[in-house]
Design a protein around this nucleic acid. Structure first.
Lengths: 156, 156
DNA sequence: CTGGATTCTTAATCTACCTTAATGTTTGCA
DNA sequence: TGCAAACATTAAGGTAGATTAAGAATCCAG
């Protein structure tokens, strides 16, 4: 019921619309979850590096909202959602905290503030994924992120 | 350890910066949580009508990010966070689902789409709170919400 | 009831970020 | 090792939503 699996870069673990009852814990590597909107645009919901847990946060009997795939070759523990929820309250609460911060940032901070907050929070992820994915996580275009970085650099 | 309390409209239950270990379950009435950004602007994080649970989602030993107050006279159950987390996994998971949807909407939908989604999801809340609070929840100004409503109305 | 405060609407102007497009840079794989 | 393909940057022009300001509607305490 708890399987250890190895996935290659680019491998898709879950698609939107799947009825999916799995939760992934990342032992090594890097996963992401993302949605695709009605215009076909991708929006990264979260990154999951070593030690993180990633899953669709909907109820286990409803179709998923999110895609999950591997941004690097990764080693994962795959668990059933219901097992996960029995033992790891701590982790659920932590995930709530992360999402709360994410909502607050999206609502009250400018692109440049969100970028700097991201840098402070996840300094290593910036090195590991393409800029356009950082932009997607921040909710801006890659072009806007380029500009943000240029402005940020000039003010130093 | 589980107290039933009655609060008046406008009463504040929690302030940003408090070390606060309480969770509130709403028996009747309506609460909200919100943050105040560095420019002094309020952003409503969530509404909690009858049957909902509301709390700061951070760890119990860290200062809160959110204010919580009553938008209507309300009757609440007040619990300790750690007790809450022992029994109500189900509810934590539900809250995660709500926040996931909230992040996806903020990232991928326009003001008008977010408004219509909100109407569908929480039709009664629209009747119970001032428009400017709906705007705050949606992440737009009251003026923009006025415009959205006018446009929405014209297209029918 | 009434007068002041809060809320809502409308409209003009402004701005952060988007779109498009052209150019430069890195990556990966034949 | 070379050369597409993917990625990043820059700049010009466009747009959703913010800001500001003024007036109208609503609320409510005295």
């Amino acid at each position: 019921m708890l399987k250890k699996i190895k996935v290659k870069k680019g491998q898709i673990l879950q698609r939107k619309g799947d009825i999916h009852t799995k939760v992934y814990e990342v032992e090594s590597g890097l996963l992401r979850s993302y949605s695709i909107d009605n215009k076909g645009k991708e929006h990264i919901f979260m990154f999951a590096p070593e030690g993180w847990i990633i899953a669709d946060n909907g109820s286990p009997d409803q179709p998923c909202e999110l895609f999950i795939d591997a941004l690097e070759e990764s080693i994962l523990f795959e668990k059933e959602k219901k097992l996960d929820s029995e033992h790891s309250n701590q982790k659920l609460i932590k995930r709530l905290g992360v999402l709360q911060t994410r909502v607050i940032m999206l609502m009250s901070a400018s692109a440049i503030e969100r970028y700097e907050h991201f840098l402070g929070m996840y300094p290593d992820i910036v090195q590991r994924v393409p800029q356009r994915m950082i932009a997607s996580y921040l909710g801006i275009t890659p072009e806007a992120l380029s500009t943000v970085k240029r402005l940020q650099f000039r003010n130093k």
